[in-house]
Design a protein around this nucleic acid. Sequence first.
DNA 1: CACTTGTCCTGTCATGCCGTCAGCTTACCG
DNA 2: CGGTAAGCTGACGGCATGACAGGACAAGTG
Lengths: 215, 215
Amino acid sequence: MTGQVRTVDGRVAGRRGQATRQKLLDCLSEMLSSSPYRDVKVIDVARKAGTSPATFYQYFPDVEGAVLEIAEQMATEGAALTELLQGRSWAGKAGWQTAQELVDGFLEFWRKNDAILRVVDLGAAEGDKRFYKLRMKILNSVNNSLADAVAELQAKGRVDKDVNPAAVAGSLVAMLAAVASHQKGFSSWGVKQAELKPNLALLVHLGITGRKPTK
Amino acid sequence: MTGQVRTVDGRVAGRRGQATRQKLLDCLSEMLSSSPYRDVKVIDVARKAGTSPATFYQYFPDVEGAVLEIAEQMATEGAALTELLQGRSWAGKAGWQTAQELVDGFLEFWRKNDAILRVVDLGAAEGDKRFYKLRMKILNSVNNSLADAVAELQAKGRVDKDVNPAAVAGSLVAMLAAVASHQKGFSSWGVKQAELKPNLALLVHLGITGRKPTK
DNA sequence: CACTTGTCCTGTCATGCCGTCAGCTTACCG
DNA sequence: CGGTAAGCTGACGGCATGACAGGACAAGTG
């Protein structure tokens, strides 16, 4: 899939090269967590990695390019999100369980990768195709599963005909992502993390099934 | 309230000064719409405004400071969002109407100010207090109204006791904001704007009242 | 062991933006 | 018309960028 890791000038990277490349990515990742995206400079990343800016530019065209790389790695790990919905039921008590675990897993994933996801979100919102394709790649698994669930319930006549499964699923996923990014904001509205989760799960369940969960 | 507009070095700005200051803000605003936040440079803004970088620094400490200014202006205009919910009912057909108009007004507001809101969102997500206070200021009117609506229904026993009004309201607002920022993303999931709105309104109505709307 | 080859890193340099200051011009007022 | 404060800019040191050529290094070869 990835083929071979190459430098900007076309050489293939060996063991040592890949190591420093990865080190640069790790340092950039740390940097993104600790300082605003706008202020992340190549020279700082290089210093932190114990190397020079020139080395950075050997492996990446610019900061954006490196961020895309990190995001790509995260996206493949993010495939784990699929399991949150694989073979789950939305009926009765099991449905409530499904909603809760989805919320839990989703928030956890976002918390772990918040720094990069922030940047991906920004890039996508700014209309950069590379970023929003990446965002789709990350969210697709969850989104498709949710859309399927809605479509299925719709086929059974348990959800109104004029509901658009993709729109509902997309909106719910967007909600989860947004809430995850702004968790801190909620605390200043007097809402604690622990209270947030069940309410999110409730909204998800309502959105998918159109009914309150049976607990 | 605003007192007096002052330059960085403490002078009070007169007519002419305020004009160039505003021109700089306008140009920055345009700039944010057309190029990624990370690439917006002071010198470009100054050039676009037909002035010099030094002038920019006379009125703003840096790009971030100027963005805060723009966002502040937008926040006061955003008070108009309150009207979307002032004295509205969530019962019966009126409830469906309320939900639809909220979604409509919200998306419209976001579409108009997407460039600045993107940056505010980023700043807030990065933990900058100034930005997330601003974000709260913008969203508070809608959020509080929604939370009140839920609390009221709860008092009447029409919504479960264990629902947290602030959490539900906040999540719904976050959903609206996120969907608005990524409207383009939905089109690549095959969902058109026109289809999106009623589905969002449905989710809002479900979230607030716990019931499907009567149309 | 010297030699070769290809990978890997860095010193250096031109370019351009940042952020500040002193100083010039403009407008207002008595 | 002279004084005062507002308004603007040229110029400068400092730093990040991005490109290149060349040196350091590891691994294989005779």
